[in-house]
Amino acid sequence: MKYKDYYSTLGLERTATTEDIKKAYRKLARKYHPDVSKETNAEEKFKEVAEAYETLKDSEKRAAYDQLGSHQSGQDFRPPPDWGQQYGGTPFSFDDIDLSDLFAGLTGGRHHTRQRGSNIPVPGHDYEVTAHITLEDVYQGTIVNLNINVPEYNESGHLHRVSRALKTRIPKGVVDGQRLRLPGKGGKGFNGGRNGDLYLNIALHPHPLFRVSGHDLYLDLPVTPWEAALGAAVDVPTLGGPVRLKVPPGTHAGQKLRLPKRGLPKPHDGEGDLFAIVQIVVPTVLSERERTIFKELADVSTFNPRGHFEQETSHEN
């Protein structure tokens, strides 16, 4: 079991008062709470802060923690010989639990409900895990392997950490941030209590070509000035393979060309659309011939894209 210095996590000395502990927690909670904070690793940092506060705010738990002695953070350690008897009720196995697990069930100096002879059903905890998937996975559906490391009670009521491997199918049409539920795959219930659930949060990897808005996709479509002016048939990538798109003559920059049903599938039926946003790109290096042709075009054309500048400023004169 690795030692965690809860005082140091809250930025406090070991002699801190309950009031100091509360103040320190409140300040750090505002800074790192995932509902409020945009700091990097906020969720992880908040978890550490909350765990430290949970133990130190309770005088019984704090006393038990102080009795573990002072060690280097992150260092493997064992509690003093009598610690388990005094605070744990029954002997613990200290090898495969986390420090937070040790204090989680501690109330009034003994472990509650999990002692031999207790018949109260205890429901298992719910857990959350994030699955990082690609747009291609969303398009086709996919199977992901999950590994979770959770505290569980064994048959004799001792807490220990268990690694579990799960395999689940992610259906087509999920969106970024979507939550899915795996019923009964969370923490095991005890004494006949129901198992908790596992919640799966979906996080989409950014795609090199497509941007997502709901179930619609957006793609930048570069075209040449002559393609925009004359019209053209161009190949456009989609998640289902390339598609031929007609760029109408006289297409202007910023125009959105809609490819219906080429977006992401919706969960129950239908599909979103793909929008190709036209961008007119001018070659930066011209051959002599190209330069000559462009100059001729400049000479013969009467097209003025800035006519409205004169109109707007002439009102003022």
Partner: peptide
């Protein structure tokens, strides 16, 4: 062999 678990959509609630 790990068994495949099916997920439920949250809007099933």
């Amino acid at each position: 062999r790990i068994e495949l678990t099916e997920v439920l959509w949250m809007d099933q609630y």
